[in-house]
Amino acid sequence: MKIIAFGASTSFNSINKALATYTANLVDGAEVEVLDLNDFPVPLFSEDTEKEVGRPDGAQAYFAKLESADAFVISLAEHNGTYTAAYKNLFDWASRINQQMFAHKPVVYLSTSPGPGGAQSVLAQAVGSAAFFHAEVKASVSVPSFYDVFNMETGEVTDAEIAQKLADAAASLKA
C-alpha cells in the first residue's frame, strides 16, 4: 500500500506535516511518501488565469502524486478557521484536473494546532466536503495543544490517548 502523507501548510517546520508523517508511518508495511506543498508552486487560481496558462506544472505534479497513491493521510493547518491559502489554491487547481481527485481511495484527515482548538474547524470542513472529491474518509482526528503531546526531537506522540487515536486512524486505512 502506498500512502501519500502531507501537512496542508507551507511552513518549513510544519507541525501538521510532522503529524501526518508520524501517523502514516504507523501503517505496517506501507510505503509512505511525504509531500511538501512548497514543491508544487502554482499561481493564484482564477478562471482567467486558467484560460491564460492552462494547468500549471505544479498542479499537474501534485495531481500525479494523488493518482499514484492507494491511500492518504492529510493533516490540515488552520488559518482563521479555514484552509491555508496555499493548500486551498493547490487543491482548487487539482480539482480542475479532476474534481474526483481522491478516486474513492481511503483518507485519514488530521488537524492540529499549538492551541487547545486543534484546528477542529478546518477538519470539519474537510470531512464535510470529502464526498464531493470522492474521498473515502476512514477517520478524522484533531490533536489539540500539539507541543504538549508531540516531541518534535524524537517525532513521537507523548500522550497515550492521542497516540491510540492516531494508531486507530492509521489502522483504518487497511480495513
Rank of each mutant, 00 (worst) to 15 (best):
96 R>I: 04
117 G>T: 09
107 V>N: 06
22 Y>E: 03
159 D>H: 05
115 G>H: 06
93 W>P: 06
67 E>V: 09
125 Q>M: 13
43 P>N: 11
154 T>W: 03
154 T>L: 11
88 K>A: 10
39 D>P: 10
71 A>F: 03
61 A>H: 03
66 L>D: 04
105 K>P: 01
83 Y>L: 10
68 S>A: 15
39 D>G: 02
60 Q>C: 01
106 P>V: 13
86 A>H: 02
37 L>P: 11
35 L>K: 03
166 L>A: 09
78 E>C: 04
137 V>C: 02
114 P>I: 15
80 N>K: 02
89 N>M: 11
73 V>R: 02
111 S>F: 02
94 A>C: 00
48 D>F: 00
33 E>A: 13
58 G>H: 07
78 E>G: 08
33 E>Q: 12
16 N>F: 00
46 S>F: 00
48 D>T: 14
154 T>M: 06
126 A>D: 01
153 E>D: 15
170 A>E: 04
2 K>Q: 08
37 L>E: 11
38 N>R: 14
154 T>C: 04
84 T>Y: 00
51 K>N: 14
74 I>R: 09
29 G>E: 04
118 G>T: 10
2 K>A: 01
151 N>E: 14
170 A>R: 00
171 A>P: 01
38 N>E: 05
5 A>Q: 04
33 E>R: 14
141 V>C: 07
167 A>W: 00
160 A>K: 07
80 N>F: 08
101 M>A: 08
5 A>I: 02
107 V>W: 12
54 G>M: 05
74 I>N: 08
128 G>N: 08
137 V>D: 00
170 A>V: 02
161 E>C: 01
78 E>K: 11
104 H>I: 00
90 L>W: 11
116 P>H: 09
111 S>M: 06
114 P>M: 12
55 R>Y: 06
21 T>D: 14
105 K>V: 03
121 S>D: 06
135 A>M: 14
47 E>N: 14
29 G>T: 08
78 E>N: 01
40 F>C: 09
31 E>W: 01
165 K>M: 12
31 E>A: 14
52 E>L: 07
26 L>E: 13
62 Y>Q: 07
112 T>A: 13
106 P>G: 05
99 Q>K: 14
92 D>Q: 11
165 K>R: 11
51 K>D: 15
101 M>L: 15
69 A>M: 07
4 I>M: 13
107 V>S: 01
